[in-house]
């Protein structure tokens, strides 16, 4: 059982679902990253997804692209990323997921990448440009370190494809809720609900998280009503951070706790 599995098991016992806010490390600067994460934790985040910037994030919309550019400009390296992981681990046992792109992992070497993250307390990895077909070595390495590999499924993934993605995923499966990049479309699409219901019928004990374009409490409730086990919120948070100069910890706390209310007491 990983820390992510434990978290989902605990939430399930309480009939709650998981809220997973996303933050890009090094955006808008290091101190603010830490403040924002404190706001997420106090606001009730169940898991935190921490972005490591890549120069060419082709699954991301303008908001996360901008955050990645700023983060790289601020000099983010793996060692500064590890510092943030360590900082959070000193505060809490909340599961942490690293989100970055395949080249970052491949460049360091899967072994170095996974073992480094594990050593600094990360629990899972999301690589949006690593389809299951190319993932054998990466998955083998991750399993050696008990690191959860979270793969993405799309509304247009066939049933047999979904079955393979479910098979390859640990922790949870990440359903991309829109045709598009992160944060570019808002509102819940009919096809996303159809895909969610279809995948939930196949996923067994593997939790299913929904992300891309989730913004409001109503979005959260709609997905949860249709079976989502977790909700991932990224661009909406970064958009709040963009342009804000102070008081971000409190603002993020308020936003996360509002969304968190929609993940509880589901019948």
């Amino acid at each position: 059982m990983s820390r992510i599995d434990d978290t989902f098991a605990d939430l399930r016992r309480r009939n709650h679902r998981a809220l997973i806010p996303y933050m890009m490390v090094g955006y808008p600067d290091y101190e603010s990253t830490k403040n924002i994460i404190r706001g997420m934790i106090s606001g009730g985040a169940d898991v935190i997804e921490l972005g490591f910037p890549f120069s060419d994030p082709l699954a991301d919309g303008p908001t996360i692209q901008r955050a990645a550019t700023t983060s790289l400009h601020n000099g983010t390296t793996l060692s500064t990323y590890y510092d943030v992981l360590d900082y959070i681990r000193d505060l809490t046992e909340i599961p942490l997921i690293c989100m970055t792109y395949s080249n970052i992992a491949y460049n360091i070497g899967y072994e170095g990448f996974v073992s480094g993250l594990q050593k600094h307390g990360a629990d899972g990895i999301i690589l949006p440009d690593m389809p299951i077909d190319e993932s054998e070595e990466y998955r083998y390495t991750a399993s050696k370190y008990n690191m959860d590999t979270i793969f993405l499924a799309s509304p247009n993934s066939t049933d047999s494809r979904c079955a393979s993605i479910i098979e390859a995923s640990n922790g949870f499966l990440y359903l991309v809720a829109v045709y598009g990049t992160t944060g570019t479309q808002t509102g819940v699409q009919r096809y996303a609900i159809d895909a969610l219901c279809r995948i939930k019928r196949m996923s067994g004990n593997l939790p299913v998280g929904v992300g891309f374009g989730v913004r409001t409490s109503e979005d959260v409730r709609t997905y949860i009503k249709n079976g989502a086990d977790a909700i991932i919120v990224g661009s909406a948070i970064l958009n709040m951070v963009h342009g804000a100069s102070s008081g971000m910890e409190a603002a993020i706390h308020r936003y996360v706790s509002t969304l968190k209310k929609s993940t509880t007491a589901v019948v």
């Binding site: 082709l58 699954a59 395949s102 949006p128 440009d129 690593m130 389809p131 190319e134 793969f151 993405l152 499924a153 799309s154 509304p155 247009n156 993934s157 066939t158 494809r161 993605i165 991309v176 045709y179």
Partner: peptide, 8 residues
């Protein structure tokens, strides 16, 4: 090495 949406 593509996002899942492009696989089909």
């Amino acid at each position: 090495y593509i996002p899942e949406t492009l696989v089909p």
